[in-house]
Design a protein around this nucleic acid. Structure first.
Lengths: 123, 123
DNA sequence: ACTCGTTATGTTCAATGGAATATAACGAAG
DNA sequence: CTTCGTTATATTCCATTGAACATAACGAGT
């Protein structure tokens, strides 16, 4: 799910996650599809879950991120606000900057990680 | 739990978290207390949970992070390896760098988040 | 020997989270 | 007016996770 290999970044409001890789992708898909349910389908996520994430997003910020309207067949749907669009862009920019800032350390760390189990008993 | 206000960073191995704020703090506490159980107590975490995290840490890296020895009353205990110490230091450094790199954006974003619910129904 | 505090596990239970399912209300299109 | 695809929500079920509890083995000190 993380866009950057080996790195996961989340922005917190007080203590709960306000936006992270998942919500960012969801908003982007809502923007491109025009509906929560279509975005949910593309992410292999239940509609309910996606809707809850949208609700959480809207509750976390002072401006709406996604505006919704009931009714189908091009009557209803979901629209990502301009605020929401810049929100995702800002988050992506933060991912970029963070990734660039720690790229060297990350590589170094990744060279030191692997799979096989090992005994760590002393003596 | 996050050391940096509004920011949470995790380093992933393939897809599972190799190290994050929680494991980093745990290792630091094991280092200062000399035991997994004492560290767990200080974090308000069950011993079993802490032990599992240590196991996961040791399994994730090519070098041991924590070495253990059974037996109490200064017979047994846990020792953070030099690798483990530098691992935590590196992670903290990555948090520092990431935090510094996105500090401005983070502040800007945080100025746009708040608590009160709001209606987002269109039309 | 005994005790104490530790690592190391197993087991059981509760809480959490997500999936699945079911409706309801709705709005545009036909 | 019917149909279709959507938002919105309740309910039920299941899997995962962590907490709690229990127990064993152990090693150093007393």
């Amino acid at each position: 799910m993380a866009r950057y290999p080996g790195l996961m970044l989340r922005v917190l409001a007080s203590d709960h996650p306000a936006i992270g890789p998942g919500k960012a992708q969801l908003v982007a898909l809502i923007d491109s599809t025009g509906s929560i349910s279509a975005a949910a389908r593309e992410m292999g996520m239940s509609y309910r879950r996606a809707w809850q994430l949208v609700e959480a997003l809207n509750a976390s910020f002072i401006e709406p991120v996604v505006m919704t309207a009931v009714g189908g067949k091009r009557g209803g749907g979901a629209v990502v606000t301009e605020f929401g669009r810049t929100l995702v862009a800002q988050f992506r920019a933060m991912e970029d900057k963070a990734s660039a800032a720690i790229a060297a350390d990350l590589e170094h760390l990744q060279r030191q990680m692997r799979k096989p189990p090992r005994s760590t008993r002393r003596k």
